[in-house]
Every structure is written in C-alpha cells, then in structure tokens.
C-alpha cells in the first residue's frame, strides 16, 4: 500500500477503505486539521446520500429497539483529563528520548497502578520498559477504556497499562498493531483481567511505527486486523 493518508478522507467517509487503511487513517486524521475538516464535510455529505434512501421500517421495530436499549449500558462520556494530556504532550516532546522519572511517575499515576506495579513481576517489567532511555509513551483513545503504550525500540518491547477494557468474548483476544505509513504490522496479543485491567509487556519486532491501534481478534491472532479499531493513537 502506498496511499498518502491525506487523500483518504473521502473514501473514509464513505466507509470505502479496507481495514488496514482505515486503521491507519483513524489514527491520523484526528490530529490533522485538514483531514478532520474534510471528514466532517464528507460525512455530512454522505448523510444526504443516506437521506435519499429513506424507507419505512417494519411497524414493530420501535418496540424492539426500545426493549433492546433497556438492556444496554451506555458508555461513559469523555472526561477531559489534564494529567493525561500533560503526559501525552510530554511524551510527544520527548519522542525517542528519555522521558525521565517525573513523566514516568505521572503516567503511572494516571493509570493508577503505582502500587500494583511494584508488587507484581509484570510491574517491574513494565517499569524496566519505562526506564529505557528511548521509551516513548502513547495514549490510545477509544471507547470505554484507556490504554497507555510504552514502547522501547532499544529493548524491542512494548508495555501496556490499561483500564476499562471490555471483555473481548469467548475465543477472542485483544491485538495490538503498529501503525505504519503504508498499513499496519502486528505487535502482539494481550488480554485484560476480569476487571478490565491490562498490565503486560510484549516483545515486538524492530519496527519503526508511527502509532498503535487495538482490535479484537480470534484467539491466536490474525495476520491482518479483522475487527473494528477500538483504540488508536499516534506516537
């Protein structure tokens, strides 16, 4: 794939990208002013195309829908979190450079696992990735939860710390992907615990990715993403 991300807004708004390009574009456009504006306009335009097809549904649809929503919990609203923003900005500024102890502490505090991290084997592994001189922290935005990805190319390791992750379902697992200019590459698989918490360190290939995306895949993973992108963020 050699597509320039900036030219994908129209096809994206029509859901006409394949999964790889969609994931890459979804990681890109929220931080690109031009692409964001284009996505907005093209989506409103697409809504006209939708409106042209308006048709009457079966009469009992309303009752079924109202019954169904009564059983569904709504996701929480996004609460601006200045600490996360701070950590995010700092991570961006210190890209490919040492984050330092202060930022490490902030990120750990953000995800609220300072104690747990020290008390578990995984925690010390995560701290080791944090403390790598080239560690880069990326916040992945998504619905429901928060995932911080700490990536050290020197160690070829990614540490994941997240909360609020939905159960992926039986026979399914979370998958982390590197976002590249020309698509995605698999980074590894991970699973949250019963409380929707993930703390994991994954050994990864030496890849120069520009961000990360998360999907849910069948157990054992997939060569390419098959599920919708649930979380994404750029380094």
């Amino acid at each position: 794939m050699t597509s320039d991300l900036h030219h994908l807004a129209a096809a994206y708004a029509l859901d006409a990208l394949d999964d790889q390009e969609r994931i890459a574009f979804e990681a890109h456009y929220p931080r690109c002013e031009i692409c964001s504006a284009e996505v907005h306009d093209y989506r409103e335009t697409a809504a006209f195309l939708a409106g042209a097809e308006a048709a009457d549904p079966p009469a009992d649809m309303e009752a079924r829908v109202m019954e169904a929503i009564g059983r569904v919990r709504q996701i929480p609203p996004i609460v601006p979190d200045r600490v996360v923003e701070l950590a995010d900005r700092r991570a961006a500024r210190t890209r490919r450079a040492s984050i330092g102890a202060a930022a490490t502490a902030i990120v750990i505090a953000v995800v609220g696992f300072a104690v747990a991290l020290r008390d578990s084997g995984v925690g010390s592994d995560i701290e080791a990735v944090f403390e790598a001189p080239d560690a880069v922290v990326t916040s992945l935005d998504g619905d429901g939860g928060t995932i911080q990805v700490i990536w050290s190319q020197e160690r070829d390791q990614v540490a994941l710390v997240g909360t609020g992750l939905a159960n992926p379902g039986a026979g399914r697992t979370y998958a982390l992907w590197f976002l590249l200019d020309e698509g995605v590459a698999p980074a590894g698989l991970f699973a949250p615990d019963r409380d929707g918490v993930v703390r994991a360190v994954i050994d990864v290939d030496d890849i120069d990715g520009g961000g990360f995306g998360v999907t849910v895949e069948p157990d054992g993973g997939s060569p390419q993403p098959t599920g919708p992108v649930l979380y994404a963020g750029t380094v």
Partner: peptide
C-alpha cells in the same frame, strides 16, 4: 436494531461540535 442499540450506547459521546446528529447517525448506520 443493532445500529440503534449502538447509537444509544454511544450517545454520551456525541459531540455536536464535531458534526451534526444526522451526520453522526448516518455514519454509524452506514
């Protein structure tokens, strides 16, 4: 039916400054 359940579930995240309710709805449905 799935679309409306999804719209209900995601409604707390609807942000009118990022697009119209109609555009958002059409996006989720399509």
């Amino acid at each position: 039916q799935e679309v409306f359940v999804e719209l209900w579930r995601l409604a707390p995240r609807f942000d009118g400054s990022k697009g119209s309710a109609r555009g958002w709805t059409a996006t989720v449905a399509h």
